[in-house]
Design a protein around this nucleic acid. Sequence first.
DNA 1: CTAATAGTGTCTATTAGACAGTATGTT
DNA 2: AACATACTGTCTAATAGACACTATTAG
Lengths: 275, 275
Amino acid sequence: MDNKIYATEGEFLKEYDPSKFDRLALTTDILMFSVSNEEADNYRKTDKKKMSVLLVKRGNHPFKDKWCLPGGFVQVDEALDEAPKRILKSETNLENIYLEQLYTYGEVDRDPRMRVISTSYMALVDKNRLKDKLNAGASWFDVTLYEEKDNVVDIVLDDGTNTIHFTIKKVLRESTTDRYSFEILKNDLLAFDHPLVILAGLERLRNKLEYTDVVFNMMPELFTLGELQQVYEVILGKKLLDPAFRRIIAKRVVKTNKMKTGGGHRPSALFKYKK
Amino acid sequence: MDNKIYATEGEFLKEYDPSKFDRLALTTDILMFSVSNEEADNYRKTDKKKMSVLLVKRGNHPFKDKWCLPGGFVQVDEALDEAPKRILKSETNLENIYLEQLYTYGEVDRDPRMRVISTSYMALVDKNRLKDKLNAGASWFDVTLYEEKDNVVDIVLDDGTNTIHFTIKKVLRESTTDRYSFEILKNDLLAFDHPLVILAGLERLRNKLEYTDVVFNMMPELFTLGELQQVYEVILGKKLLDPAFRRIIAKRVVKTNKMKTGGGHRPSALFKYKK
DNA sequence: CTAATAGTGTCTATTAGACAGTATGTT
DNA sequence: AACATACTGTCTAATAGACACTATTAG
């Protein structure tokens, strides 16, 4: 494809010939979530967990130098579901990652080049599986979600070097279409409509926590209940009470005879997912 | 477009020139649900409610003479969400119908003509709003869902003249992709992958009953709690206990001072949706 | 010993399930 | 009167929330 680097977006669009492509193109964007540990200052304290999302810096127009979700075109001879698998493989060198279709975005002007429709997928992965280093330009961003009054949501992404802050308003609809429509109030650093994809994914994940076992795709083989609870807490954005959490999770996990020690406090039993 | 009628599918495909179209096309299919009354034999008994879905008989290849969901191509200058609205308007002459995106289907060979990706939408409507008669070839089918053992689901659609029966197996996945994949075991009369769309919609609707107010899109302005309960029962596929149902629904409805009489039994209060 | 987390017991509040009973129209 | 549905009261079972308590390690 076209790899020439253009100085300005105007210049790029002037030289861009949509007829070289199809009238309508289909892409996939992958919202890849994982959990990261933020090391504690105190040797006794456990690491703090955060949600993290993989972003890629764009090297060319449109949206040059902005961040976006990894993605790409769906090939004509490739099933829609296969595209995100192929992209994830090229991006992380991993196969068998949990993938679920999120939503298909199709506003007319979402891509300034031409008409592009994009089906987004949510991927969940345990970071410990990621041995290979990331492709150039890719980076994991910690996610912090602030749910505020008036249905305005603030999301801050941080990879240690860059901070991305965007704001979305959830507008309640009358009765037609889905419950909410979303309006981007502030967004300087993310490309396309990717702020919407990130919010949709966070909400979907939050809902799915209750009635599915998707979390375990983000957990290592063995984990403590404390760790699992922290992942729940960070996804739900609130503290849970220990006994209540353990009651609910009991049916989904099996205790192993291994223990996690060395934390400066009572060791904890390691559990694994009960299928 | 091409309206010539071909005698056989082979003949049709021979004359069909994919290069006349784009390499890749996007369509929408609309799964339109409503509730129908089956009149009771006994004057005292209340009408039995059934889910119903709108199907259209195909007049041309591919899948000539099979039934399919109403749908059509997404125009290049039309937002994805607008396409189902436009199609519903032309099909039912109604606007402001509840629409929600369901899923995007993108298997390579789902349409024998060319590569077609289809985003399906679920529409919910109160049948009383449908004053105009349906387009030729369109018909409402009552839906009966039989959930059997081994994750095999039987669905029977009936419009009084035609009976469509298909069977889908829900295959549990390991961890990658969604919880289930679906396999069509038997399907003689529905076009494309539309059996999957219908099942996906029924399951989505069932889930959304619990945590949203979508049902009210299928209800008239005024309704009795008995009617509302019947709609719940037919969607969930099970009987509910009166007191439990009334406790749960109480926050979502307001009692009016109107009554429904003439049923050969105690009149019931009419309620409306509390927003 | 102390800080920090692991893990359990138990009381209470809330919600769901079950069933019986009363109410009131039409024929 | 009889049938059919409307509607309510209440007991019980199950679940969720809250809090206090005990256990066990590294330093």
